[in-house]
Nucleic acid binder design. Structure first.
Length: 990
DNA sequence: ATTACAACCTTTTTT
DNA sequence: AGGTTGTAAT
């Protein structure tokens, strides 16, 4: 590189490959980036480079991301470097939101009413359902919906070929047609339409993108056909495109993402500069190894290299638990163990629990709630999907677009007006026959100008008239005024709506149990609206640049934009005003976790049916999903699997085929001992300062178990003994083992465990003999013995531990102690009554215990065949270790130790040449972002959390609820909290 | 005939 | 937490 480049601060934080990607002069650049390789950073830097070095105007750059979160983050990062001015000007957002902006500004050129609304999922479903029902189509509406969506998403490229298929159900096409007609009549676009119409616009009216100098696409592997088309069209003036992606992380095939787009790009732009980023700055080597083992089972995948930059680290864990409930409890215990054993270095903020589906969160939430741990949930139920919020949104939509039949239909009877489903349905049908909107039908009927054939009782008609019609038309008038004078704001409008509906009272009567919570959500909604108005006013967000001789419509009302925003960002983000820096555990779907990272990651429910989801059609994609989940972890990775399904007794569950082939070879069966080398390794990966041993152990609560031994390592369900029918295909791994020391330490099945006779005690001998060394034989886990020892030790003096151990009996009495140690720990964390028989009071005792554990684990590691080799790291200088760590120290990565001579060994994306022979399903390339962990997804307001669990959490002193649910934030929140951007690049890999 | 209410059952992933 | 069923009340 040139001298000038060397001095450029942007480039300093980049490694060679990244730098090449950033500074490439090629007009199209394809960056293939594995997980944790700094993808986002690279893309961001390229934007900066284009602006600073090549003179691109920010307003002439388009950056499209796949998720709102990614867009936000990128925006923030760019703003940090280029300043808010540039940040504002760059056209940056999800494909959908960018398309919406263009359609709203220029849609008139393709005959689109600029006041179009966006049909969300519910709308589409309702419409299609109605159509199917009306025609007695023998189609599953859900299927029809996705069929239509796919058809749209494939884009023009796929148009030609597919007739060869098979006789398509003609009703599908009819359904499609009518659906489209209906949307048009209501002036709605569904998600796919946004893209389809935008393609149409850019084709027919290229002038509106004539200014575009560069197009950058994030998460390219998740791009579908229509998006590819869109990308090309945005770039039509200059053909300058940069994409970043990783085929291994393609997890949106179900939404028509096509990995094939990569080949298309190379075919359409033969001079594309291909660059691969191979260094992984995120995870420990052993995490990468295991992840790679998983992903490599996909034989067709594009082989790719991941070069670990960090040391080996703790072995990833695959933990088997008896039940989902036990799984939840175990996760809690392991989280607590980790947080405690690392002193102040790790907080709950560093922990994520990643799920295949949101519904799996129930057990986890229950366990967290029981333990009093606060959490935040990403993905899954969305704020805007809440009943009470949806009602309000439907009213707003009706106000904005009275012709939106679906919105009207949903609110006709919402504060109850005595109009039932059947009547509503009839009204809709009638309106549709007449080709008028439901709104005008009602209007005319109530005004008497035209009687509806559907009969409406006078009482109800009166209600309709005074309540529904009046409210809506009143507010419509008010909504008009919003744009002009700033006296009336969107918030005023909503508040008026609330009062006219008597909404609070409605909630009270409708949800006697719940109403407070729901009212809080409403308040939250108000404050969200307030934020939106403020942001829209301050930074003229999302305004497209003026282009000479091209006129755009700026007619966009605030209300319209607000509604669009809601539809496109189902993820309500709350600017939490840094109010409380709640260190809170994150629960997320894997999909929503893409691009993020955490020091500690749990992936529960790794069983067949969950991770290859039972309804999944693409197993490879499911595997990739697991891969994505695993590669979110920086230092500690835990997979877990309940052996028996949650419901009832029946369902046995089988370990996911994605890990079972090498489960015992690649994973540890229980959490690692947090001995000094492990701790130091983690500290190094995270770039944090590790507290001294003393500091750590001074804080350990009494009765704290330093090992992951509260749950049996190889649980066998007691019910199994009682003649459970073997589900098809279920086969206990290996011969049925006797339960040795696997008595349930979890809290379920306590009784059963109690009654279970102890088969043998021979295991004790062995354990005693080996002292605390783990038996390495599979199936002979000494967890119980360890537990016993610890419990016993708790009752005795620390020095007597060895002796105490011998006195342990494998009797029922023991379990009591175990249990109390679990529960004791939980409560002790906050309270601190001396545990029964609590000899383990002081730091000294804790230290003693620790040392014991450390030596034990050292022994175990020696015994284990595959023990990770831990580099002997120099102990932290004691003086250093005494430093109290600032809580926020987390974020800087240390300079990376890069392996110097891997050049020779690394493979390249060698077949990344133009016009690849298109192996039918060959999937390739993609990327991953090296996000910094402090940019977790936006919080959901606490009010939207599952309330039940929070209530229980709140009631046990220890942990506070994550967010103050106070009154809506005042107007003092005029400034967006300035969140420092953490660009966490390793200092310089040479 | 319609509406309202109570007892079930079911939940992929997201713009 | 929602939707869908089945039953009771209007």
């Amino acid at each position: 590189m040139t001298a000038a480049q060397a001095e450029n601060p942007i480039l300093k934080s980049l490694n060679a490959a990244q730098r090449r990607a950033v500074t490439s002069n090629a007009s199209t650049v394809a960056i293939l980036a594995g997980p944790g390789s700094g993808k986002t950073h690279t893309l961001t830097s390229r934007v900066v480079w284009l602006v600073q070095q090549t003179g691109c105007q920010p307003s002439d750059i388009v950056v499209a991301t796949f998720t709102v979160k990614a867009a936000r983050e990128m925006k923030e990062r760019i703003g940090k470097v280029l300043g808010p001015d540039c940040e504002r000007k760059i056209v940056l957002g999800t494909f959908h939101s960018i398309a919406r902006r263009y359609l709203s500004a220029y849609g008139k050129h393709i005959g689109l009413d600029s006041k179009f609304g966006i049909a969300d999922d519910g709308d589409s479903r309702a419409v299609i359902q109605r159509i199917c029902k009306r025609h007695d189509f023998n189609i599953d509406p859900g299927y029809a919906r996705s069929w239509i969506s796919k058809k749209k998403a494939k884009g023009p490229a796929a148009e030609a070929a597919p007739n060869k298929k098979q006789p398509e159900n003609p009703s599908l096409n009819e359904c499609y047609r009518e659906y489209q007609e209906h949307l048009e009549r209501s002036n709605l676009l569904d998600y796919d339409d946004l893209l389809v119409r935008c393609v149409e616009l850019l084709r027919e009216y290229p002038a509106c993108v004539s200014n575009i100098q560069a197009v950058l696409i994030d998460e390219y592997q998740d791009t579908n056909g229509i998006q590819y088309e869109l990308m090309k069209l945005f770039a039509q003036a200059r053909q300058r495109i940069t994409i970043v992606g990783d085929p291994d992380q393609s997890i949106y095939g179900w939404r028509s993402a096509e990995i094939r787009n990569l080949y298309r790009l190379l075919r359409d732009y033969p001079d594309t500069d291909e660059i691969s980023l191979e260094e992984n700055y995120r995870s420990s080597q052993s995490i990468l190894d295991v992840s790679l083992t998983v992903i490599q089972q996909d034989k067709k995948r594009y082989q790719k290299v991941l070069l670990p930059v960090h040391t080996k680290g703790a072995r990833p864990v695959l933990r088997k638990l008896k039940s989902s409930a036990a799984e939840g409890d175990w996760i809690v215990s392991e989280i607590k163990r980790a947080v405690m054993m690392f002193g102040d270095m790790l907080t709950y903020e560093d922990v994520a629990i990643l799920l295949r589906s949101a519904s799996l969160s129930r057990h986890i939430e229950a366990a967290l709630g029981k333990a009093g741990l606060a959490y935040r949930m990403i993905g899954g139920h969305k704020f805007y999907e809440r009943k009470e919020i949806k009602i309000l949104l439907d009213y707003l939509r009706a106000i904005y677009q009275p012709d939106n039949n679906d919105a009207i239909a949903r609110i006709i009877n919402v504060p109850r007006r005595g109009i039932g489903d059947t009547t509503i349905k009839r009204l809709i049908e009638e309106a549709e026959q007449l080709k008028i909107s439901l709104w005008s039908l009602l209007r005319k009927h109530c005004q008497g100008s035209r009687k509806a054939t559907t009969k409406i009782l006078p009482k109800m008609e009166a209600k309709l008239n005074t309540e529904l019609l009046r409210i809506i038309s009143n507010l419509q008038t008010q909504a008009q005024q919003i744009t002009e004078d700033s006296q009336h704001t969107l918030v005023d409008l909503i508040e008026k709506l609330l009062s006219q509906l008597d909404f609070k009272q409605y909630l009270e009567s409708e949800y006697p149990e719940d109403h407070e919570q729901r009212w809080q959500n409403v308040q939250e909604f108000l404050s969200l609206a307030n934020d939106f108005v403020r942001d829209a006013a301050n930074l003229e967000d999302e305004m497209l640049p003026e282009i000479d001789n091209v006129d755009q419509v700026k007619d966009d009302s605030i209300l319209g934009r607000f509604l669009a925003n809601v539809a496109l960002a189902s993820d309500a983000q709350k600017n939490d005003e840094g109010a409380e820096k709640k260190a809170v555990i994150t629960i997320s779907t894997i999909h929503a976790a893409k691009g993020l990272e955490w020091p500690i990651v749990f992936v529960p429910s790794v069983y067949a049916g969950s991770i290859p989801h039972s309804r999944a059609e693409d197993l490879d994609e499911e595997r990739r999903l697991l891969y994505v989940a695993m590669t979110r972890a920086q230092a500690l990775l835990y997979l877990s699997c309940p052996l028996y399904g949650s419901q009832g007794m029946g369902t046995k569950v089988e370990l996911s085929p994605f890990v079972s082939p090498f489960a015992s070879a690649a994973f540890a069966k229980q959490g690692a001992s947090f001995n000094r080398p492990i701790l130091e390794g983690v500290a190094k990966i995270l770039g944090r300062d590790l507290p001294s041993e003393k500091a750590i152990f001074a804080k350990l609560p009494t009765m704290f178990s330093p090992e992951d031994n509260l749950f049996p390592v190889d649980p066998i369900d007691t019910r199994d003994a009682e003649g459970q029918e073997d589900a098809e295909g279920y086969r206990p791994k290996g011969p049925k083992r006797q339960r040795l020391n696997n008595q349930g330490y979890g809290n379920d099945d306590e009784e059963a465990a109690e009654e279970r006779p102890w088969k043998k005690e021979y295991s004790t001998t062995m354990e005693q003999a080996s002292n605390f060394t783990m038996a390495s034989l599979p199936g002979f886990m000494s967890a119980g013995a360890h537990q016993n020892a610890l419990s016993a030790a708790a009752a005795a003096e620390a020095e007597k531990e060895a002796a105490a151990k011998k006195t342990v009996k494998m009797g029922t009495t023991r379990r009591k102690a175990d249990q109390s140690s679990l529960l004791g720990f939980v409560t002790t964390a906050s309270k601190k009554p001396a545990a029964p028989g609590g000899g383990f009071g002081g730091p000294d005792a804790s230290m003693a215990r620790y040392q014991l554990a450390a030596s034990r684990s050292a022994a175990r590691m020696a015994a284990e065949t595959k023990a990770p080799e831990l580099p002997k790291l120099p102990a932290v200088d004691p003086s250093l270790a005494k430093h109290k760590l600032a809580s926020g120290n987390a974020l800087n990565r240390p300079s990376v130790i890069k392996k110097e001579d891997d050049k020779s060994s690394k493979k390249r994306y060698h077949c990344f040449s133009s016009s690849p022979p298109r192996p039918a399903g060959a999937e390739d390339v993609k990327e991953e972002q090296a996000t910094t962990q402090e940019v977790p997804a936006p919080d959901r307001p606490a009010t939207s959390f599952h309330r039940t669990t929070f209530v229980s959490a709140a009631s046990r002193g220890g942990v506070r609820r994550p967010v103050g649910l106070g009154p809506p934030p005042g107007l003092d929140r005029l400034r967006k909290p300035f969140k420092p951007l953490t660009i966490t690049r390793p200092a310089k890999p040479q």
